[in-house]
Design a protein around this nucleic acid. Structure first.
Length: 548
RNA sequence: GCGCCCGUAGCUCAGUGGAUAGAGCAUCUGACUUCGGAUCAGAGGGUCGGGGGUUCGAGUCCCUCCGGGCGCGCCA
């Protein structure tokens, strides 16, 4: 706007549309540079053939005129070398933020999406052949955190768990359980964890008698029972983490319900399939893959890839417009083929997205802990959570990007969980709760009796302004997190806000019966801070305690 | 060999092409007898793996080399 007026007024030369840079506004790292800043003048220097500093001054003059008008959110405008345009927000704008938080706490931090999506997020998806172990932890947390952020950003999200309920692994589990039940030696490929013995002793009578009927397939019957039993255990473990799935999808159902056949039809119609050596192949190289991929083996069995393409069709048939897969780094070889198949079937390639997580190496006493279900040497997720706690574990994974490998030293994590920054944030929340209780005893309360004028007055003091400036960033933090599909921005924000609050607490007496008006204003700000902390913690699935 | 990811403070990690590269932990020095000291104030600690390039500006983009992880089955 200011740019347009400056051009119209002749202070800036006209710039051809094609040369116009996009207007970028960002939040400066250094608070002395104001609340918002723009590099527009530097971008305009070349097309305008003017020194960036002079352009910035022209734009600043126009913005300063705005600042004079009543109700303007612009407080002050300054120019800094080599041509930054810095804007400080007016107190009124900050008071509005506090008012908005207090008026509608439930929606604070929820930002409407420009185009809301129906998103399917599939994660964990460990086969139910044993309890979840700590190697599954990252996927569970990263997936759930992503879902929470997407929901806050206005999208509708379905959490989905995909599991194999037939085939070799289930037979294997069945064979292991049957062997123990019968007191026979374990087969070569058996699962050997203690849970297998537990399963053997828990087989219900009706299942066991069905398995022993002449001509029955005891391994499959017991395997399917055991697999469902294990799956239910996994569901319970995830519930302890605060992760709840909307859909549990069995791989077998994709065949029974014809989804794989439909996928093959689509690929056939697109001319993307061919026969060779008795197998059915997808021509993935036509889409840039380095080799073609088998869909159905020469022995007639479908590959995992076959299941995967059927699943894509099934998911889109439910009306999703975005599919997100949370996979381990070892799956990156399968990304291209699945996206290629989706493209070939006529879906938008960009709507099929994989998030690959780097590996977590678990270390105990300097030695990497093996994670083999076959050998039974693994640490379960339940055991880990019992040691370090859900809040600390959630924070640990939320605060890190998923692209970096992590060495997770179990002893160190136990020791450090006591120093986890999550407690710093929770402490700030609890401390505010305590202040509000004290205020209530003194007959003081936030909000109600305080008009915008009182708030504005309070904000002219430095401690209030700094705190409100900090909490006002929350919606933009959520927006950024959703766009980046990362949550460490939220942990960083929560830590900064807690720091800002502790500084405020040091400098500003909140509960002071001698000054009821100022107390009420400060209580409003403190209450808004508490709601913001609770909102940020809630986004991470972490509790916000009233007392610690 | 080819492909993807990673390399930032002693440690664990942030850092959508912008201003003096940040935070927590660890280390060191301090703090008001009033609202919770799980707090606060301050200090030390960096050739952003090396080298080129792109531009007003590079930890960020491009090339290359070094180091690490992971993949390259009609396995699951």
């Amino acid at each position: 706007m200011a740019w347009g007026r400056a051009t119209a007024a002749g202070t800036l030369p006209h710039v051809a549309t094609i040369e116009r840079p996009t207007v970028e506004i960002e939040r400066p790292a250094n608070p002395e540079h104001g609340d918002l800043s723009s590099n527009l003048a530097m971008k305009l220097a070349r097309p305008c053939r003017m020194a960036p500093l002079r352009i910035a001054e022209a734009l600043a003059a126009e913005l300063a005129a705005d600042a004079g008008r009543p109700g303007s959110i612009i407080g002050a405008v300054t120019v800094a070398a080599p041509g930054f345009l810095n804007v400080r927000l007016a107190d009124v704008a900050l008071a509005d933020v506090v008012g908005a938080v207090l008026a509608q706490p439930a929606v604070w931090g929820h930002v409407p999406a420009e185009t809301p999506h129906r998103v399917n997020v599939e994660f964990v998806s460990a086969n139910p052949t044993g309890p979840l172990h700590i190697g599954n932890a990252r996927g569970a947390f990263v997936g759930d955190l992503l879902c929470r952020v997407l929901e806050a950003a206005g999208h509708s999200v379905t959490r989905e768990y995909y599991f194999n309920d037939f085939g070799a692994q289930v037979r294997n589990l069945g064979a292991s359980v049957v062997a123990i039940r019968r007191g026979e030696p374990l087969p070569e490929e058996a699962y050997r964890g203690a849970y297998v013995g537990d399963l053997a002793s828990e087989i219900p009578d009706d299942v066991w008698s069905a398995a022993e009927v002449a001509g029955a397939d005891p391994v499959m019957i017991v395997g399917q029972w055991a697999s469902e039993r294990v799956r239910a255990g996994i569901e319970a473990s995830l519930a302890h983490l605060g992760v709840r799935f909307d859909v549990w999808k069995s791989e077998g159902s994709l065949y029974r319900d014809g989804w794989v056949a439909r996928a093959v039809e689509r690929l056939e119609a697109a001319g993307a399939l061919f026969q060779e050596d008795g197998a059915l192949w997808f021509r993935s190289t036509a889409f840039g893959d380095d080799k073609n991929r088998v869909v159905r083996k020469s022995n007639g069995d479908w590959t995992y890839f076959g299941s995967d393409i059927g699943y894509v069709v099934e998911k889109f048939s439910r009306g999703f417009d975005q599919l997100i897969y949370i996979w381990g780094a070892d799956h990156h070889g399968t990304v291209a083929r699945l996206r290629n198949a989706a493209t070939a079937m006529g879906y938008d390639r960009e709507a099929v997205q994989m998030i690959l997580m780097a590996w977590v190496r678990f270390i105990r006493d300097g030695v990497e802990v093996s994670m083999s279900k076959r050998s039974g040497e693994f640490i379960t997720l339940d055991e880990l959570l019992a040691e370090i706690g859900v809040d600390a574990a959630r924070w640990f994974f939320a605060a890190r990007g998923h692209t970096s490998g992590i060495d997770f030293d179990i002893e160190l994590a136990k020791k450090q969980s006591a120093e986890n920054p999550v407690y710093y944030v929770q402490y700030a929340h609890a401390r505010i709760a305590s202040i509000l209780r004290k205020a209530a005893e003194a007959g003081l309360a936030p909000g109600a009796a305080v008009g915008p004028a009182a708030l504005t007055g309070a904000l002219t003091g430095a401690p209030e302004a700094a705190l409100v400036r900090a909490l006002a960033r929350f919606p933009e933090i959520v927006e950024d997190a959703a766009a980046a599909e990362e949550t460490h921005g939220i942990t960083a924000f929560a830590t900064e806000l807690a720091t800002e609050f502790h500084a405020f607490y040091r400098d500003a007496r909140v509960v002071d019966p001698a000054e009821p008006e100022r107390s009420a204003a400060r209580l409003s700000i403190v209450r808004a801070t508490q709601l913001t902390l609770a909102g940020a913690l809630g986004l991470l699935g972490i509790s916000a305690p009233e007392a610690m």
